[in-house]
Amino acid sequence: MTHPLKRSVPIVVGLFALMVLAIVLSPLVGSTHINLMRVFDRSIPFESNVDAQIFFIARLPRALAGALVGGTLAAAGVVFQGLLRNPLATPYTLGVSAGASLGAMIAITFGATLPFAGAAPASLAGAMLAVTVVYLLATARHSGLSTTVLLLAGVTLNSFFSALILFVQYLANFQDLFRAMRWLMGNLDVTSYAPLAGAMPFVAISFVAFVWLARPLNLLSLGADAAGARGINVRSVQRTAFFSASLATGAAVSVGGPIGFVGIIVPHLVRLMVGADHRLVLPASIFLGAGFLVVCDVLARTVLSPMELPVGIITAVIGGPFFLWMLLRKR
């Protein structure tokens, strides 16, 4: 009798290899030709080595950002789906992205007058605000985390924050409005490693929680009562899942904007490949999500070159029809 996990381990390893391949190969692809020999030629000072700068400043951080954001969104999607016991949930269902977007909108619109600079920290702060509000709403009447109440609170906050976003956009001048809209479409051109380093601690903390959550999430899919009867502390699992997945989502959105569909199509594809066990679904989703977004970003920067196509549009063009197919297949 083989362990059901063992059968799918080669698939997970394969997805890992694909991710590494995507990260390594994507910096070699682009609208500009670069000479690899020159890129790694140490005798040319970096300041004047254009090939090296294109490789190390323009492309490699993008590849890493794509991997970080894609892997994180896919994993957060898995956790939210497990928490809400709904395969159609996304990392944005509970309002994290609406909060992040509001933060970014404020930073972009009032950026010149605010003491801090940049959409990234502002979006992270907005995400955390949204998470806190949703949690307080969801636990106001009940001691536990009812998924129905959680979902309602998330949907309500989503529309409330969307209204606030419209209000901020109303106050914005034309140019800021334009840039704000573009932020919403996603952009992985980070131009430095700083945004990655900034998001990394949050992602790392969340991933540690995900490792712990993998098995309890399996049992949670039997229902909260059934999981509790098997000795699981359902409340602490739900709380950990909610906060860690929200934190991960907030960090990912602060790096790349609210890129859609990665958090839903990747987990779904992965379940088709490795089954439902979260101990496989989580790592496999991280690898496939990372590889998928890295490839999408290569398209984003090459398809309309020298113009940049928002990566969110590419994931949406691929993800939208896929999502519909999923919905139809369900019925």
Binding site: T32, I54, A58, P306, M307, E308, P310
Partner: peptide
């Protein structure tokens, strides 16, 4: 047009 850092370098 929106451009990337790579385009500035290119």
């Amino acid at each position: 047009i929106q451009i990337s850092a790579e385009q500035v370098l290119a």
